Lab assay of single mutants.
Amino acid sequence: NKFNKEMRNAYWEILHLPNLNEEQKNAFIQSLYDDPSQSANLLAEAKKLNDAQA
């Protein structure tokens, strides 16, 4: 299933973003579980936030 793979990839990438705190990571990961079809968008948002907090 495409979403499972996308979701897993997004999950791991978000988990390893160095500039997000636990609360931010948890919020993105919760959103992933709530709507796996948004994995790519959530990952993009997480990366933007990560870069902004660098």
Rank of each mutant, 00 (worst) to 15 (best):
A10T: 11
I29F: 11
L32F: 03
L43R: 11
K47A: 05
I29N: 02
P18V: 12
Y33V: 09
I29M: 05
A44M: 13
R8K: 15
L15T: 04
L20H: 00
L42H: 07
W12M: 02
N19K: 10
I29K: 13
W12Q: 03
W12F: 04
L49P: 01
H16F: 13
N9R: 15
Q38I: 11
E45I: 09
I29W: 04
L32G: 01
K2A: 07
A40P: 12
E22T: 13
N41K: 07
D51M: 11
L43V: 06
S37E: 04
L32T: 01
F28M: 05
H16L: 03
L17Q: 10
H16I: 03
N9K: 15
A10H: 02
N26A: 13
I14A: 01
W12Y: 07
Q53H: 08
I29Q: 04
W12H: 09
S39Y: 12
L15P: 00
A27R: 07
S39N: 03
N41I: 11
N19Y: 12
Q24I: 03
E13F: 07
W12P: 01
K2I: 14
E6P: 01
A10D: 01
L49R: 09
K5G: 04
E45N: 06
F3G: 15
Q38V: 08
D51E: 14
A54V: 11
A52R: 11
D35N: 05
N19P: 00
P18W: 14
Q53S: 12
F3H: 15
A44V: 06
K2N: 15
L49E: 08
K25G: 02
Q53E: 15
N1V: 02
M7I: 06
H16K: 07
I29A: 10
D51H: 11
K25W: 03
K48I: 10
P18M: 11
Q38W: 05
A27K: 12
P36I: 03
E23G: 05
L32S: 01
Q38L: 09
N1W: 00
A27F: 11
E23Y: 11
K5V: 01
A10F: 02
P36D: 01
